[in-house]
Design a protein around this nucleic acid. Sequence first.
DNA 1: CTGAAAGCGCTTACAG
DNA 2: CTGAAAGCGCTTACAG
Lengths: 338, 338
Amino acid sequence: MTEKTVQTIADLARLAGVSKSTVSRALSDSPLIGEETKERIRALAREHDFQINASASRLSLKESRTIAFVSHPYYQKKGFGVADLFMLEILGGISTGLAKSHYDLLMAYVDPSDTEWPARYLKTGRADGFILMTSTRKQHHIKALVEMKAPFIIWGTPPANQCFCSVTGDNFGGGKLAAEHLLRSGRRKIAFLGGPAEELEVQKRFEGFQSAHLEAGLTLDPALVTYGWFSNESGTERTRTLLEQHPEIDAIFANSDFMAIAALRVAQEMGRRIPDDLAVIGYDNLTIAEDSDPPLTTVSQNIPLAGKLLAQNLIQYLQTGVVTNVSIPAELEIRKSA
Amino acid sequence: MTEKTVQTIADLARLAGVSKSTVSRALSDSPLIGEETKERIRALAREHDFQINASASRLSLKESRTIAFVSHPYYQKKGFGVADLFMLEILGGISTGLAKSHYDLLMAYVDPSDTEWPARYLKTGRADGFILMTSTRKQHHIKALVEMKAPFIIWGTPPANQCFCSVTGDNFGGGKLAAEHLLRSGRRKIAFLGGPAEELEVQKRFEGFQSAHLEAGLTLDPALVTYGWFSNESGTERTRTLLEQHPEIDAIFANSDFMAIAALRVAQEMGRRIPDDLAVIGYDNLTIAEDSDPPLTTVSQNIPLAGKLLAQNLIQYLQTGVVTNVSIPAELEIRKSA
DNA sequence: CTGAAAGCGCTTACAG
DNA sequence: CTGAAAGCGCTTACAG
């Protein structure tokens, strides 16, 4: 017979010669319990590797102390791109933020066309709130969440008339930083190689880009402003068109590292030397940005911090109802391409 | 006053005019309940959007119906690479596999030097089992898991003397496929650009590579076999050395797409035309393999399937104690580089 | 500061 | 086939 392990607070109470109530209070650090008693019980718990049962605690508390990270299944997806790498990195930050408040991180892969999932997670008590990244049919899901008053936070810029928590990168600042750097190095024919024009993030980056020009007393040539997807292919195609139609371009500000790296390649094929003939700046500072040829100068966001804030601000909202909308700063990671 | 919602099985029981026991049994599809009764209760549950409380159910069942995916925090990591993209893709598969059995997926970010985490998750009843990918100090964690008899499954090849569940890619088959393809196209001076020599995966790929040569009646030139890291940098450096010392090389089989893409670039810089002068094959079939120049021929593994099997086989182990070790097939994704 | 007792919402052995 | 009752392991209002 191995020594009977201490499984419940009742076992611990017996050992300590106190009641279950006292053990429970001691372990949750209640002010009702004397410091000596607490310490004695804690020592006993440590000694016997005691861990409180989460299901029982959650049932009693009526809280799951769990946050669901909402993502989509990859049924028809072929591969993984920017958004995915980004998501992975932010997940780490989220987990750090949640751990601080002893919350668990649940992965919720939901069908993009489903709107019942918030109810399913909330009513079963499997999650207390949700974190949403950019996703297919995002507005659609946000609407469902708002309607059922589900607690959630999003990565991205919330529409002006909405009231829910968000964390976003400083896209205006990022666009501005990029343009300022290029202008400072004497570039005057700078192309804006944007992501989808309808995305708020992209619009903000453009505004920052524009603002840097205005402050320098320069006006933008609208012909050098173009939009596409964040992908490699889109970057390739847009860059080619841009350089063919406007050979005078001396710099490109791309809205993603993938686009920027594509631009690098196309430009070099077309005989431009980087950065002498053409400077290129990307966005996101993914790993691939270090390995490009030449290494990519790019706008960097503190993604772990973003994750941590997503976690902490959602928990704060759960506990106090305070709605926060925060923006994290952008920095320029200067390498060789600009 | 809004209509009072149905929160518990007691509410539902009242509505249906039966006992809680009956409702509970009906919802869990117990054979004890008549089909008509079941259907009536289910209809009522649907109508009122009733969802069973997970904490209560788990407390009663003494199961969390939750699997923890074990990963490490990214404190000092700068960026994300192969392993990460791979992990993200497999996570999707795992979630699919778990969903089928109504298990939840929890992210467990644990300190690589900690060995207490399995106890923490198990004793609190937050997880019933663990999924481990390649990780820092993997053997160390496996040892801890085995010692405390924690249920788990790993991605990778288990050491021969161990008895626990695993899912792995067919690395032997992958190496063989690559070599066969190169030999078939007439290559005779094929370099093996390996990952770390001590990794079982790498050893298996080499064995497959070798086996294809032997079957073709050819012997390997040991000078063309080299090991490094899976990274871009390592690929660059090894390829350069290889091509400088052995200009006769007419093909390279790289152990990762990152290495292969680096090889592509270096070889082209050194004046080789791909695939005419030099054929290159990678491993993993990541997104970046499609976008390389030229597009990369690479060994592809069915990652979503791998994830699904990790989930299903772990659950099977939990429920039946059956230990499975499965290997998923490798395929060659032929593009332009070989 | 501490304890006895009720309650959180399920599941299931037992009795019918 | 159905129900009353005990039990899962916590938390906390209430009483002292």
